[in-house]
Each structure stands twice: as structure tokens, then as C-alpha cells.
């Protein structure tokens, strides 16, 4: 059996979190930061590293099923990593190229979120990646709604969240799939103009396990932030008034360049583009508000945009 190259351990991740994540951020007190780290602390509680997989999502489903068959529950926060994916795919019928050199994997989270946090969960992936990329000195990296990470118009990373119901227990899980181009430098012809990797941008190879740990540490923080926000919502929402805490969205806004942009929108924008509009707002639940050329606004809760 081939030994996996992108090997990250929970201990490496903890060290990364303690080393650089424990400084108060976003104007939060040290005590609140500690709460956030604790809330996200289950991310990477177990990490499985493979040299090759078909799809990380499929491995995650198998992992949950096997745990059930053994009479236990899979650990929330389990991360599955693979050096390369032989059967990876993007949304719809799109290709996703996942050769050796990238960060390919999946995070397993039990579905214990309230509605708004559930809506915002996919944002945390793009936020974590964008933070990690900017930390490498690529300040122009930005998130495109919902969670693609682009650098100068080229896609560096893509993410997809899938739900899964465990067959025996009926427990619901979120499978957070991630794909980040790092040391891989060649892309299929159809992606060569639109994709880019970190090593292409920096002109050097990067320490893949260290970078993976950095991404997971930031994902742990942002998921902790989401859970912290949920706690704040519960504390200040005695009735049906709107949410008071916008920590996740505030952070997303600071990392995204989507607001104010003219976009082409579609549920499957590449195959069935629907309309052109200007992005004017993002709602507290993450929905995108766009103004059409006739001056009327539409709010979209799913789908995707391309800048134009």
C-alpha cells in the first residue's frame, strides 16, 4: 500500500491552532476567542490520510456506515484527506481535476445546526481557504459567492457541501468537500485558462501538510465562529426579531469581492445562465440580492455567479 504524502495528524493541527489561531481576532475578547476555538475544536479530531481515493465524499459516507456497523458513531470533525482523487467531480456534471499536489478531502460534521447557521455553513469553507491563501502573501485572493476562491479571476479552490443520512441511525451529516490547488501545476485543457495553483502564483512549491493544517485550523476557527454566532442569536432572540450577530457575514464580506460586482447568475450558470445583474447586498442568511437592469431586485438562495 502506498504511503500518503499529505499526512496531517490531529496533533499537528492542534499545534497549528495553538500556535497562531489563539490570538484574539475580529475585535473579540480573549475569552470569546477561546470559546470560538473550543466550539470549533472538534474539527480534525480524527484525520485519515490516503494516497488515492475515488471521491473523498464517498469515503466519508463509507466511514459513517462502517462506524454504524461497528455499533458506534463516526467522530464529528473527522477529516479525510487524499493525495489524489481518481473519481472526483464538481457540481452538476463538471470535471474536477484532483492530481497529486493539491489539498483534497472532506470534513464530516453532524447536522446539529439551526437554520441560519446551516445556511451559512458553506461560507466557512471559502473563508478559511481565502484566509490561508492571503496568509501566503496573495492579498488579492477573494471569495466569490458562495465559496469559490479566486485569484485575479482564476479559480484556486472550490467547495461543496453535501448532506448524508446514516442508513441505520438516520443521523444527518454534513460532508464538507474541499479542493485546493497547491503544488499541482497542470490542468486539463478546458481548465487551463480558468484555474490556478498556489505554486504557480508563488513560483515555488509549498509544504503541503503544513498548508493543509493551516487550512483546517482556519476552518476550525470559522466553524467555531458560526457556532458562537448561533449561541449569540439564541441569547438575544426572545421573539421573531432579526438576527443581531453577523460575525460570519462580516468576515465573509471582508474576504469577498462579490458585493457591487456585475454578474451573470444561473442555477447552473455555465450551462443555463439566467440573467445579468449587479450584486447589491447579502442577506443575514447568506442569500444574494441582485439588481437587474430594469431596477428591480431579486434574492437568490442558491445557484452561482460569474463576474462579467
Amino acid at each position: 500500500m502506498t504511503v500518503a504524502q499529505n499526512t496531517v495528524t490531529p496533533a499537528m493541527l492542534r499545534a497549528r491552532i495553538v500556535g497562531s489561531e489563539q490570538t484574539p481576532r475580529l475585535g473579540l475578547s480573549a475569552a470569546d476567542s477561546e470559546i470560538i476555538l473550543r466550539l470549533g475544536g472538534h474539527v480534525g479530531s480524527e484525520i485519515e490520510c490516503y494516497s488515492v481515493l475515488g471521491r473523498a465524499m464517498e469515503q466519508a459516507r463509507a466511514h459513517i456506515r462502517m462506524a454504524e456497523q461497528a455499533g458506534r458513531t463516526a467522530a464529528g470533525g473527522t477529516v479525510i484527506l487524499a493525495d489524489c482523487l481518481a473519481g472526483s467531480k464538481g457540481r452538476f456534471t463538471r470535471n474536477w481535476h484532483a492530481p497529486i499536489g493539491g489539498i483534497w478531502g472532506c470534513l464530516l460534521l453532524p447536522d446539529g445546526l439551526l437554520d441560519r447557521a446551516r445556511m451559512l455553513l458553506p461560507l466557512t469553507l471559502g473563508m478559511a481557504c481565502c484566509e490561508m491563501v492571503r496568509e501566503q502573501g496573495i492579498s488579492q485572493a477573494a471569495v466569490r459567492w458562495v465559496n469559490d476562491v479566486l485569484v485575479d479571476g482564476r479559480k484556486l479552490a472550490g467547495f461543496l457541501v453535501e448532506g448524508y443520512r446514516a442508513p441505520l441511525s438516520g443521523e444527518n451529516w454534513f460532508l464538507l468537500g474541499f479542493g485546493i490547488n497547491v503544488n499541482n501545476t497542470t490542468f486539463p485543457a478546458e481548465l487551463s485558462a480558468s484555474a490556478v495553483s498556489l505554486s504557480q502564483l508563488l513560483g515555488r512549491s509549498l509544504d503541503l501538510p503544513a498548508l493543509t493544517a493551516s487550512f483546517l485550523a482556519r476552518l476550525a476557527w470559522n466553524i467555531g465562529l458560526l457556532l458562537y454566532q448561533e449561541q449569540q442569536d439564541l441569547m438575544v432572540l426572545p421573539d421573531d426579531s432579526g438576527p443581531a450577530c453577523h460575525l460570519v457575514l462580516d468576515r465573509w464580506r471582508s474576504l469577498s469581492d462579490t458585493l457591487g460586482r456585475r454578474v451573470l447568475y444561473g442555477y447552473n450558470v455555465e450551462q443555463q445562465p439566467q440573467y445579468r445583474a449587479r450584486v447589491v447586498d447579502i442577506r443575514p442568511d447568506g442569500a444574494l440580492v441582485m439588481r437587474l437592469d430594469d431596477g428591480h431586485c431579486l434574492t437568490e438562495y442558491s445557484g452561482e455567479v460569474r463576474y462579467c
Binding site: L120, V146, F159, V161, G163, A287, Y301
Partner: peptide, 11 residues
């Protein structure tokens, strides 16, 4: 079900 790039199977 597709919501915010989260695809969930509906049984």
C-alpha cells in the same frame, strides 16, 4: 435540495 451550494438528498 440545493441551498447555498449545499446539496442535501431528500428521502
Amino acid at each position: 435540495m440545493s441551498l447555498m451550494k449545499r446539496d442535501t438528498p431528500v428521502y
